[in-house]
């Protein structure tokens, strides 16, 4: 059933996202195309500036749209009129949440890839060649320092962390919207309110942690840990990447559980 939900969600997202992706690629190509007319005239300068400007705006817009679609589709599909259809399908709330999360992640990743591709296309030629050369050199140096395996693992851990972070972001919003829809009026706004309230609480908690950390930093234990980490930078980075991944995974599970509970027991369709 989840596969069916995913398929329908992909189609729903494609309505807005596919045009966005196409526009990004098109503007990227246009930027490259403009360069064929390179000259020192003001006309060219303006044209190039506009092209690049439009390209950058399109990129930012596409990223924002991916995020916004991911969050708003969850709300629209489950808590508005459409909810009367969605929530009476023979599907569990958990399956709904999973589908939306997966498809949101998919489109976010797709948008990033499309952006990377478009930027490469836009800078095709000298600029790209030099960038790739520089990149290769840096990577080569790093690999010789820490070893190929470590580097490869870092890449994997890094990508995993990015995915988990993205999933975490969406699930947090889903949980907040699910709590917000229990309100009597302005349910979407209430959801946004929950998000900011939580953000506020996190800031306070974060400050508290910083204070604790400063206190902790005076201890011997801290000094010895720091000494060890200093001596084992590779290990440190692995720990950092994996550690944060684990934290985000745990919080994702929490947010998932909250959204699931709200959808199962506390649904408030109007």
């Amino acid at each position: 059933m989840v596969k069916k939900l995913i398929r329908h969600d992909i189609r729903a997202f494609a309505r807005t996202m596919l045009p966005a992706e196409i526009i990004v690629v098109a503007l990227g190509l246009f930027c490259r195309f403009i360069q064929f007319f390179e000259s020192r005239t003001t006309a060219y300068e303006i044209a190039q500036f506009s092209a690049v400007g439009a390209f950058v705006i399109a990129i930012l817009a596409a990223l924002f749209m991916a995020f916004f679609t991911g969050v708003s589709r969850f709300y629209k599909n489950l808590f508005t009129n459409e909810g009367y259809l969605s929530m009476t399908l023979p599907v569990t709330p958990a399956q709904h949440i999973l589908s939306k999360t997966v498809v949101s992640l998919l489109y976010t990743a797709l948008t990033c890839l499309v952006i990377l591709l478009s930027v490469s296309l836009a800078s095709m030629g000298e600029l790209l060649f030099e960038s790739v050369k520089a990149g290769n050199y840096l990577i080569g140096k790093l690999v010789s320092l820490v070893g190929g395996t470590n580097f490869a693992f870092w890449i994997v851990e890094g990508i995993l962390l990015l995915c988990v972070y993205t999933v975490n972001t969406y699930l947090l919003w889903y949980a907040c919207l699910s709590i917000g829809q229990r309100a009597k009026k302005n349910r979407a706004l209430a959801g946004v309110g929950v998000y900011f309230a939580y953000y506020f609480i996190r800031q306070i908690f974060g400050t508290f942690l910083v204070i604790m950390f400063t206190v902790f930093a005076q201890t011997e234990l801290f000094r010895s840990i720091g000494y060890y980490l200093d001596r084992h930078p590779v290990f440190t980075i692995h720990t950092f990447l994996i550690g944060f991944t684990v934290i985000y995974v745990l919080f994702s599970l929490l947010y998932f559980a909250i959204a699931n509970r709200m959808l199962s027991k506390k649904l408030n369709l109007e």
């Binding site: 009129n81 009476t88 023979p90 599907v91």
Partner: peptide
């Protein structure tokens, strides 16, 4: 009420549940 019951219950709500696009 759950997944099994939803398989055999056909619901026509009072409001329009169709999405627009």
């Amino acid at each position: 009420p759950g997944v099994e019951s939803k398989k055999i219950v056909a619901y026509l709500p009072d409001n329009n549940f169709l999405n627009s696009w």
